[in-house]
Design a protein around this nucleic acid. Structure first.
Lengths: 152, 152
DNA sequence: CTTGAACCTGTAGTTGCTACAGGGATTATG
DNA sequence: CATAATCCCTGTAGCAACTACAGGTTCAAG
């Protein structure tokens, strides 16, 4: 057993950052985390710096930042003397995206509510939900067909 | 040229339903659309029924229903005499999901707004955005780490 | 008959992980 | 020291719902 003091295994790193070992290995593979020390037997060992970095990553992901955005944020956070304008820009851009998704999602909710409320529990033949979905005149698809699964 | 009257090609079907030929072929592959007639040369030809079915599918997708949900809805809409209780259940379930996503997304927006508003444009060193992301005490990850990318 | 647009199949890429299979390493216990 | 339990390794494949080719064929118009 090589002398790597204060070093933890991938399992504890994962536990302490609220993710899974597979995710850590995945982050290493896509170079979001750098290669770390290994024991003689080839097992990964991490220090506190790694814990902090992964914590940052997980928080940013929880905030909905894409992996690419996280990469940028990490690069910036490594340059303490830089102006944080760019950080701000990344965050604002993300906020805008979230706001636009929110708008579309809430429009969708309204449509769904209307649809559901008009169903009278009769037969499929005359079901308002089926009708709405079949309707050729519906306009939602025109505004949304470019990013349908971007709602959710 | 075989006699297939009133038949359209995959391109026009796609155009009329607001999607792409690749998507139509994809739907056929996953058996959301059934195999259709082919010309002698092997090209697909569609009729009005196919247009209606694909319209239905696209609308349901635009409403955010999963492909599996669409499959169910399609099966139901093929049984006009059935009670539409099940249709209603699928739609309501989906509405609930949308509403819960909305809630999480708007909580996220609030967090992001707060974060962005606290950035004073100074240096990265003291950037509030970076600080928030680095913070070990943050609780959002506890509520969200199970479904982070389920926000959007 | 020739041209050009539309179409074909099959495969791989996208995003961000997650889930194995089939092994090896480490650690705790007897 | 032996063994068992637990951890860890690599590599690959899967998820959702498409999208994007490459490399070739067919169709419809002139």
């Amino acid at each position: 057993m090589p002398e790597i003091s204060h070093a933890i295994g991938i399992g504890e790193l994962a536990r302490r950052t609220g993710c899974q070992p597979e995710t850590v290995r995945y982050y290493e593979r896509i170079e979001l985390l750098e290669n770390t020390l290994r024991t003689e037997g080839g097992q990964r060992r991490y220090d506190e710096r790694a814990v902090r970095r992964l914590t940052f990553i997980r928080h940013a992901r929880d905030f909905g930042f894409s992996v690419d955005a996280v990469r940028e944020l990490l690069a910036m956070s490594d340059q303490p003397d830089m102006s944080c304008q760019e950080v701000d820009a990344v965050a604002k851009h993300h906020l805008e995206e979230v706001e636009s998704r929110l708008q579309r999602l809430s429009a969708l909710r309204d449509e769904l509510r209307r649809m559901v409320s008009q169903c009278d529990g009769g037969k499929v033949e005359s079901c308002r939900i089926i009708e709405v979905l079949s309707d050729h005149q519906l306009c939602i698809s025109e505004t949304a067909h470019k990013g349908a699964h971007d709602f959710g």
